[in-house]
Simulated assay, not measured.
Amino acid sequence: MSRLRAWAELLRLPALFSVPGDALAGAAAVSARPDRGTLLAVGCSLCLYEAGMALNDWADRAEDAVERPHRPLPSGRIRPPAALAAACVLTGAGLALAARAGRPALAVAVPLAATVWSYDLVLKRTAAGPGAMAAARGLDLLLGAAATAGRVRPALRPAALLGSHTLAVTAVSRQETRDGSPLAPLAALTATAVLTRLLPGRTAGVLTTALALTYATTTARPYLHAALNPSPPLTQRAVAAGIGATIPLQAALSARAGATGTALGTVALTALARRFSRRVSVT
């Protein structure tokens, strides 16, 4: 059980519930019902997401030994070669699933995998880090569109909205382990307000509006607290809230496209994410 918990911590399992909504929102954006291709895209997304988590800790093992000695690698509960091997296997599995979904899906999955690896190994510590993470989320939504309908153009706008949210959360996460500046959480708070305004569009339905407000209220208070006191504990709570808010954002994007059932199914993942996050941290 202790070894399973170590892997759950390494892979940040509660964050997995924020992944399926990407592909589902992508399918909704191209006005297609989820099908076999969508499911393959979800599987690919889950694999690549977890590959990124394992690779992240492998790349940060020296830094974590100082700042996060309780993490699975520095604490010795998981060996670094095992984490790297897991990242490789999961990446291969994700690309294989994308290939099963067809050439359009694979054409999106390859740059998505490249973005994940580039972020963890090179870009994370540079100014391009948040942009790379935003690109990965946007590509993940496009993957769902490509796998379901073979086209991505109608999904570009929702991909940009989802990427903007991810950009804001990632910028805040860069100061999780030290006292930082209030600018990042303030910028994230502003981005949330703008996205909340843009989500309903001109012909907002009740469900879309409700999900947009849910998205806003999930992050508003944690971002504000982190801005008033940018300490590691409050910043980590803000990041966790930002990750959790991805789910109602995905649901709002699906509802905006008219996919009510997809939206309701996506937002239902919030309860599971909260339940598992009480046992394993998402940050």
Rank of each mutant, 00 (worst) to 15 (best):
R125F: 10
T190F: 14
A210K: 12
A204G: 10
G163M: 12
A146E: 02
R77S: 01
Y49P: 01
P104S: 02
A245G: 04
S231G: 02
V89A: 15
A6T: 06
E67C: 06
A160C: 09
V89Y: 07
A107D: 11
A113C: 09
H165K: 09
T177C: 07
H70Q: 14
L211A: 11
A86W: 06
R12T: 09
T208H: 11
G52S: 00
L106N: 08
E50H: 13
A241H: 07
R36E: 09
V206K: 15
A212I: 06
A147L: 08
L95W: 03
A240P: 03
A146Q: 02
L183W: 14
L16C: 15
A263D: 02
P222M: 05
R202T: 15
P80E: 11
A134N: 00
D35S: 14
A145I: 10
D22R: 02
L10A: 02
A251W: 07
L13C: 02
P14C: 02
Y223P: 10
V152F: 05
G131S: 03
T266H: 00
R197F: 06
A268N: 07
G265I: 03
L264V: 07
L183G: 10
A41I: 06
A210S: 12
L40I: 09
L167S: 09
T246M: 15
P81K: 04
L189Y: 01
P182C: 12
T262Q: 11
S118Y: 08
V280L: 12
A87D: 08
L249K: 06
A146F: 00
P248R: 01
T170S: 11
L73C: 12
R103D: 08
A263G: 11
P200H: 05
A101T: 02
R5L: 14
G76K: 10
L123D: 07
L264C: 10
A113M: 09
A255E: 01
A27F: 05
A114G: 10
A127L: 07
G261K: 10
M133A: 06
S164K: 00
L90Q: 05
Y215H: 13
H225M: 05
L106R: 03
D64Q: 12
Y215P: 00
P233M: 05
L40D: 10
L249G: 03
A212M: 13
S31I: 05
K124G: 05
P182S: 13
G37K: 11
L167F: 15
A245Q: 04
R77E: 08
P69E: 11
T217F: 14
T115L: 08
T266F: 00
T203M: 13
T266C: 01
R61I: 00
R151T: 14
R61M: 00
A25Q: 05
G205R: 14
Q250G: 11
S31F: 10
P233N: 04
T115R: 01
R174D: 02
A252D: 01
R36A: 15
L106F: 13
L46F: 05
S181K: 11
S281D: 15
A134Q: 04
D179K: 08
T115H: 04
A245E: 00
C44R: 09
S45R: 01
S281T: 14
S173C: 03
A105Q: 01
A238T: 08
Q236P: 04
P222H: 08
T115N: 06
G180Y: 05
R157C: 13
